[in-house]
Amino acid sequence: MGSAHVIGLDIGTTAVRAAELEFGGSRSGQSATLVRYGEVPLPTGAVRDGEVVEQQTVGTALRQLWQQQKFSTKDVVVGVGNQRVVVRELELPWAPLTQLKASLPFQVQEMLPVSVDDTLLDYLPTDEVDGPSGRMVRGLLIAAPRDTVTANLLAVEAAGLRPTMVDLNGFALVRALHRAGNTGRIAAYVEVGARVTTVVVAQGTTPRLVRVLPMGGQQITDAIARTLAVSQPEAEQAKRELGLEGHGPVQSAVTEVTRGLVEAVRNTFVYYQANHPGRGIEVVVLSGGGAHLPGFGQYISSASRLPAVLGDALAGITIGKGVPSGRMQGLESLVALPTGLAHGVAA
């Protein structure tokens, strides 16, 4: 088999980001080369809580991104993930995976807050066990509102791109970040975006829990802007320079919002531990722009009593000649979603 090019597309609150990976004959993660990467900012309100609101605005940004980076194809793997996407553990009688997936509408219709007709369903098996009624499969049910997925796909298609696969952002995080010394460990991956924080607990490459929290770094910027009565750019600069290590009203504003976010993350860890005794989390891997808040890593480590490190989505990936020298320096923890989405085709 020859090389294959796959583009992972992350539609975030503040920007669209795309990474083109070239895979060798086996498409294994170790043979991946980053051949192109780029991002284009989005205006406020174009994407809200992980869902595209202004399809033409996002489509225009995507067209600009493709014109700038000269990606080799218009085929893309698109990520989704917000609070409306339900991910929960589900045990089913054993059957081939195709049959399990076909049975989901009948198995889960009482579990969902909306009709299965309005929901896209998928299932990720994680274990097989022997139950009182025989062989069982444990796994994660993924239930995504059809209108959420459709809104994102329409924006992609408005740019003339072709979605070949839709993947869960949480799964992409694990694929992107597990290679940096986390293989085989039970790790909690925490991606702090602008308005949404994704938390995934995984054992090696197998996700065990996925939660999406409706808060992120933009809420901290908003709090500083209100407290100091300054513009968003000024508040963003103060956040990046001072963070949790500042003094006075800035630190108070940052701490108040960050405390709520960290508490929600910690509660997610506690929930996981309670449902998976004997398989405790060993490390917290941070990614996303919000994870770069000065003092955030120390704060979450202290609150969870776990070591916290910045993730490296480029570990094991060769940087191609087409990527300008130094272009990816400092972006290792910021490109987890687009690179992880590209890896999904090889999974």
Rank of each mutant, 00 (worst) to 15 (best):
S3E: 12
H5D: 11
L9H: 05
L9W: 04
G12K: 03
T13N: 15
A18T: 04
E20Q: 14
F23S: 03
G24L: 09
S26N: 13
R27T: 00
Y37S: 01
V40F: 06
V40P: 00
T44H: 13
E54H: 15
E54G: 12
Q55L: 04
T57M: 05
Q64P: 03
W66P: 08
W66N: 09
Q67D: 14
Q67W: 08
Q68E: 13
F71K: 01
V76T: 12
G79Q: 06
G79Y: 02
N82K: 06
Q83K: 13
R84E: 10
W94I: 00
P96K: 12
L104G: 06
F106C: 00
F106L: 14
Q109P: 00
E110D: 15
L120G: 01
L121S: 10
P125T: 11
G131N: 10
G134H: 11
M136N: 12
M136S: 09
M136K: 15
G139C: 03
A143T: 12
P145H: 10
L153P: 06
L153Y: 05
L154A: 13
V156S: 05
V156D: 02
A158F: 12
A159G: 06
P163L: 07
V166E: 01
G170P: 04
A172C: 04
A176E: 01
L177A: 08
A180I: 08
G184C: 05
I186K: 05
A187S: 15
Y189E: 11
V190M: 05
V192P: 05
G193M: 08
A194T: 07
R195P: 00
T197N: 06
V200D: 07
Q203V: 00
P207R: 13
R208V: 00
P214D: 03
M215F: 10
M215C: 08
I220K: 01
T221D: 03
I224V: 12
A225S: 15
L228F: 09
A229R: 08
S231R: 03
E234G: 03
Q237D: 01
E245L: 15
E245T: 14
P249D: 02
Q251W: 11
V257C: 11
E263D: 14
A264R: 13
R266W: 10
Y272G: 00
A274G: 14
G280F: 06
V283G: 07
L286T: 13
S287N: 07
A291G: 02
L293V: 07
S304P: 02
L306P: 12
A313R: 11
A315Q: 13
T318V: 14
I319Y: 02
S325H: 12
G326W: 03
G330W: 10
L331W: 11
S333M: 08
V335A: 06
L341T: 14
H343Q: 13
H343L: 15
V345S: 07
A347W: 04
